[in-house]
Design a protein around this nucleic acid. Sequence first.
DNA 1: TAGATTGTTAATCGATTAACAATC
DNA 2: TAGATTGTTAATCGATTAACAATC
Lengths: 194, 194
Amino acid sequence: MHYYHFLAQQKDLGGVAGVTSKQIAKVLHLDSSLVRKDLAEIGVHGYPGKGFSVLDVMDAIRMHLGLNRNLRAVIVGAGRLGGALASYRGFGKYGIEICAVFDNAPHKIELTLAGYQIQHVRELPVIVKQMGVLIGIITVPSESAQEAAHGLVDAGVKAIWNFASTDIEVPKGTVVRQEHLSVGLCALAYQIRS
Amino acid sequence: MHYYHFLAQQKDLGGVAGVTSKQIAKVLHLDSSLVRKDLAEIGVHGYPGKGFSVLDVMDAIRMHLGLNRNLRAVIVGAGRLGGALASYRGFGKYGIEICAVFDNAPHKIELTLAGYQIQHVRELPVIVKQMGVLIGIITVPSESAQEAAHGLVDAGVKAIWNFASTDIEVPKGTVVRQEHLSVGLCALAYQIRS
DNA sequence: TAGATTGTTAATCGATTAACAATC
DNA sequence: TAGATTGTTAATCGATTAACAATC
């Protein structure tokens, strides 16, 4: 994952065609052995004495991660965070498209947020099914997170990215990624405890 | 870190005074041995046959993480994401206070965002020094991230939480936490590759 | 060929888990 | 005392690193 990010930068910038395991290792603070092992695992072969082809590696990663699939996601919660994520350029690079933003507050419906017309959660099931959405992003307040999760699961979503600070429960078969913003900041604060 | 989050919930909800390593382990999907070991390391002692005191554990964690210090942080970038973080309730629980929001766009200055009056980055050094701010949160576009980081470091900030998608460089002695939002979503997408 | 880097095996390291006597 | 859980040591597991023959 991080390899891909680094290589994409490489490619965009210099347009360099080759890279060695040593170079990657250095930038990502890893051991070159590990890099070679990882690359071998996903089926890229390098050229002894030369290194790896940036394009080969990127292709292999895309293949392995299934990055070509053009997945669709929806956002539930048209608050500031929802807006921030909706306007975030960068998901597209990984083949993920935000295709709708929902909220349950009547006064928000029909407003435009980051280029999306906010829709009532009532519409969620229809849209999710129609567009084959597999990912739901929850940016509602904690109190409503579980409810939003239910709605998403019922509609057929398979993965949930939860920004609310409560843990949510989902039937197994659905994966959840809990984004603990405070924990992130906390970890940082810990490092400067001196 | 996660222990604390869980225990805080426990306390808020049931008001239960005791907890066993087994209970914690179950909720957090860990081994009870590990929990006991971790707790021993930070200096909490349990009662054989009974378990641990929730308050004891929370105190020890706070102590160990230095959670009582009331650190201050500023946000650079008064966009949607900046606003979302500024209004995020929950940092306070970990002793971190957002004390100002900056931007460089003249038309934003003096506007109010999530209860903060947006200030020009020009004011940053003064405020950071005056209030003893140690943490900077970057929510500007990628192009300006490095510049923002410079400004923060120069002003005396020791830790940076970077939401821009470019990696930033800082002198050593400063810690950076790079928040790769796309990577997060990607990891999730990977799990439903089927 | 000489130099550089891969691919892979073996060695090391650390973290997780199992087990159990000590304790309440 | 009997039951439960801690604290800690030893065993296991996996992941990282070192090393080096094979390759270009």
